[in-house]
Design a protein around this nucleic acid. Structure first.
Lengths: 208, 208
DNA sequence: CCCTGTGAATATTTTCACAGCT
DNA sequence: AGCTGTGAAAATATTCACAGGG
């Protein structure tokens, strides 16, 4: 298991290299990648060597082979079934996001408890209530749940999703969620991002 | 300047403690906070002591004073003027997000180049084109820009925003943005989040 | 000669462990 | 007795620097 920071960097390397491939490049060096990302070449080499891939000394990495390895390690060769839990503005924005489908994430289930939304369709998928969520998730073999419900509803829907067998979650609700050992939950917290900016703004002001 | 990881934790401590305050608590210990966040008490104490605040040995921290210090260090006592650049689904979701205003972030400028949107109002603010963006930003004394334009437009609007004096940006476009020394840009990258989940899903599958 | 792969060195972050105040 | 504040230790992460293959 690679560490979190390494995986995040590998994902970005993969993007950059795919960009180069699209431009017709065949080889890339650690220095090229590093420059595109404001990292050190040494770190790029360390990260790539953790994949086991061997570059050619004096030349660099073969782009095609490197992308193969990256896609394979990162799990981007298969499609992944996703459930969207919470069909508000944010949820709808995510589903409509072009990178979503392109990278192999297929939304197969949309859940919302607003009676006005239940039964309507979003991007061709019918909105269902959270009644029997665990079963719905299991039946559709959902692998990833994206949580965009209000904070107070989040723990409950996560519990149901986990009961339905989901082990990978992306949570947008600004609240700490407890999951059993072995379940992976990532947080995207917009207020937290904004507050980070407020901190550095404030720091700047105080130390002017 | 506190390090990034410490600031992120302090922001969360602040939330947890405000919650406790709302429940009528007057004192909190490092262990209480740690438990709510799955961190170690030792780390909580280190983080809080980096604020300079002194707790009471044998008792813990006075919640009211601690919140004061946190709000003051984190810059949450003042309001911050925000520009939303890109008024698509995601941008509109952000502006409508309740935590946004509550935490003191006021949207004062909305930019979009879709002719259908220009002149219309979102949350009471008129949508303007990106023409003369630097001046618009400077005139309204915007401190923070939230970038939700498509990837290919992102670098350009960031350049204008920075030319207009903005030093704090939150970027949702899935592309590396170059900013001058001294400008702070944070990334929220939904595809990256999803790909992280794909990695651990894949890892799980391979090592079953 | 150029660039990788990697041991060793360095830097950073987290945790331990305990003295000391209330 | 209980919990903080903090040196010191441990664990992690990053960078240096160079041997060695193409």
């Amino acid at each position: 298991m690679l560490n979190k920071a390494t995986v995040e960097r590998l994902i970005i390397y993969n993007r950059v290299i795919k960009e180069l491939k699209a431009q017709g490049e065949k080889w890339v060096t650690s220095t090229d990648i590093a420059r595109a990302l404001s990292k050190t070449p040494s770190q790029v080499r360390r990260d790539i060597s953790s994949l086991g891939r061997k570059g050619k000394r004096g030349v660099g990495y073969n782009i095609k082979k490197l992308i193969n390895d990256l896609d394979s390690v990162l799990g981007l060769n298969d499609e992944h079934c996703v459930a969207l839990i919470g069909a508000g503005n944010l949820g709808r924005a995510l589903i409509g996001y072009p990178g979503f489908k392109r990278e192999g994430f297929i939304c197969r289930l949309i859940i919302d408890n607003d009676p006005e939304k239940i039964g309507s369709k979003i991007s061709g998928i019918k909105v269902e209530s959270s009644e029997g969520l665990a079963k719905k998730v299991a039946r559709k073999k959902i692998a990833i749940a994206v949580i965009t419900v209000p904070a107070e509803a989040a723990q409950k829907v996560v519990d149901s999703a986990v009961a339905g067998g989901i082990k990978e979650l992306l949570n947008f609700a600004p609240v700490k969620i407890y999951v059993p050992e072995g379940v992976n939950i990532r947080y995207v917290d917009l207020a937290l991002e904004m507050e980070n900016l407020a901190y550095s703004l404030n720091y700047r002001k105080k130390n002017k």
